[in-house]
Amino acid sequence: NSLAEAKVLANRELDKYGVSDYYKNLINNAKTVEGVKALIDEILA
């Protein structure tokens, strides 16, 4: 998966839960796919 794909999928996942734009910005600023995954795990914990 590319970083861009990971960000799109992460933001879709956040949308399902009604997560605020603050967290979407964190996702969009992530530098690695692993970073995106770690943020998602933390946000949805």
Rank of each mutant, 00 (worst) to 15 (best):
N1Y: 09
N1E: 12
S2E: 14
S2A: 14
S2Y: 08
L3R: 00
L3W: 00
L3M: 02
L3G: 00
A4D: 13
A4P: 03
A4T: 11
A4Y: 10
A4R: 09
E5V: 12
E5W: 08
E5G: 07
A6I: 11
A6W: 09
K7L: 06
K7D: 02
K7N: 01
K7R: 03
V8D: 15
V8G: 11
V8A: 15
V8W: 09
V8H: 15
L9G: 09
L9M: 13
L9P: 01
A10F: 03
A10P: 01
A10K: 00
A10L: 03
N11A: 08
N11M: 10
N11W: 13
R12N: 14
L14V: 05
L14T: 02
D15H: 05
D15R: 04
K16I: 06
K16V: 05
K16D: 05
Y17A: 10
Y17G: 03
G18V: 06
G18Y: 06
G18N: 10
G18L: 07
V19D: 04
V19I: 14
S20P: 11
S20N: 10
D21T: 04
D21Q: 08
Y22R: 04
Y22Q: 09
Y22C: 13
Y22L: 08
Y23S: 02
Y23I: 04
Y23C: 06
Y23F: 12
K24G: 03
N25M: 12
L26G: 02
L26R: 05
L26Y: 04
L26E: 05
I27W: 00
I27L: 06
N28Q: 11
N28F: 06
N28A: 12
N29D: 12
N29M: 13
N29G: 11
N29L: 11
N29A: 13
A30I: 05
A30N: 02
A30T: 07
A30C: 06
A30E: 09
K31T: 14
K31H: 09
K31W: 06
K31N: 12
T32L: 01
T32H: 03
T32Y: 02
T32R: 02
V33K: 04
V33G: 02
V33Q: 03
E34Q: 10
E34T: 06
E34P: 04
G35K: 13
K37D: 03
K37S: 05
K37R: 11
K37A: 09
A38M: 11
A38Y: 09
L39G: 01
I40G: 01
D41P: 03
D41S: 12
E42A: 14
I43S: 02
I43R: 01
L44F: 08
L44S: 04
L44A: 05
A45G: 11
A45C: 12
A45P: 06
A45E: 07
